[in-house]
Design a protein around this nucleic acid. Structure first.
Lengths: 194, 194
DNA sequence: GCTCTACTAGAGTGATCGTTCTAGTCATTG
DNA sequence: CAATGACTAGAACGATCACTCTAGTAGAGC
């Protein structure tokens, strides 16, 4: 069985994906994790803020690793992109349209009210954009173009989650993925043309 | 002076843009609108849900009109897109990075917990996508391509809000706007080539 | 000038929020 | 075996939540 700290983390992650940051109470968290309140404040003395920051950081890192994994497995950058959006769409369908990513929701909820959490979400997005930028640069795409592409990719992914969840249909995510492939193809053309 | 109903609507809209749906209390709303609780329930007997749905619907319509306005004023579809993202970026900077759009946040907060609000957000996104699709079709872009482009545009916009607010910097929004212009140019090329 | 409806006004409801606190269990270490 | 630190356990706190309720004001229509 998972340790109490990990149970708290995964329970919070899932609750955030369903109800967001403000919509999730610590009572729900302790109930879902089968942990007493005392344990929560033992592992996260800073309370909800510290717990949330831990969820943002760890799940941000998990997604970055997942991205690298998919990128490694793909035949080329364009396929990596489609694969990633396809994977996200499948997760969405298989989980009754729970948000695949808690971070985007939290980011918008706390950006104006909680500076440390805002910075936490920013660090995660930046790490994703940096990871994707490196990949594209490795394919010969110039730094500027690679960065623009990576930023757009992350934005389109987060935006795709919004649309797909509102629609209760993963189609927008796949549609957006197709556009992202077009964008990557376009960028790769200028490289191979050299 | 604005009527009480309108004051409630605009106050709620702004509070949602700062703190989201679950982060906004009705006490904050009545205080900001300088309206008593009784008036809130007089105009919105359904309480917070009905008020929220009204905010979603009215501000969704406002944004659709704004899009049409900018599209009308622009020289061509590509410029319309850049203008729209530029306008969003400017609003963000001038409002201390308050969310330009309350709907995306609400959509993710309530998608799994409030069916009528989820449908409300879906209707708004669909109306935006339909409006953009019509524009692109009017330029000779085939329906399928136009729909894909419009969906990607809305997703990229919402995702751009997430990144820009997390970063407290409008740059990601402008960067994403540039990619969207590339995408529109790409689609227009196949049209004029005919 | 009376009546009726629209609206204002805010105190009060029970429920739930994040957090604190005290008490206790249990394995490890001297 | 005594003692220490890590962790469990949940009752209790004041604050705040969405919402209800009663009372009162004001303007329109007759």
């Amino acid at each position: 069985m998972m340790g109490t700290r990990d149970r708290l983390l995964t329970a919070t992650n899932e609750l955030f994906r369903r109800h967001g940051y403000n919509g999730t109470s610590l009572k729900q968290v302790t109930a879902a994790a089968a942990a007493p309140t005392g344990s929560l404040y033992h592992f996260f003395p800073g309370g909800k803020d510290e717990l949330t920051l831990a969820v943002i950081t760890t799940s941000g890192e998990t997604y970055r690793q997942l991205f690298e994994l998919i990128a490694d497995a793909a035949a080329d950058p364009a396929n990596a992109v489609t694969d990633f959006f396809e994977a996200a769409a499948t997760v969405l369908e298989e989980t009754d349209y729970i948000d695949p990513c808690p971070i985007g929701t939290i980011a918008r909820e706390v950006a104006s009210t909680n500076e440390s959490l805002r910075q936490g979400t920013d660090r995660v997005f930046t790490s994703w954009i940096d990871a994707a930028t490196s990949r594209f640069e490795g394919q010969g795409i110039p730094r500027d173009t690679a960065q623009q592409l990576a930023t757009t990719l992350v934005a389109a992914l987060e935006g795709g989650f919004v649309l797909a969840r509102a629609k209760r249909d993963a189609e927008p995510l796949r549609t957006v993925g197709r556009s992202m492939r077009d964008l990557v193809d376009q960028a790769m053309e200028t490289v191979t043309a050299k």
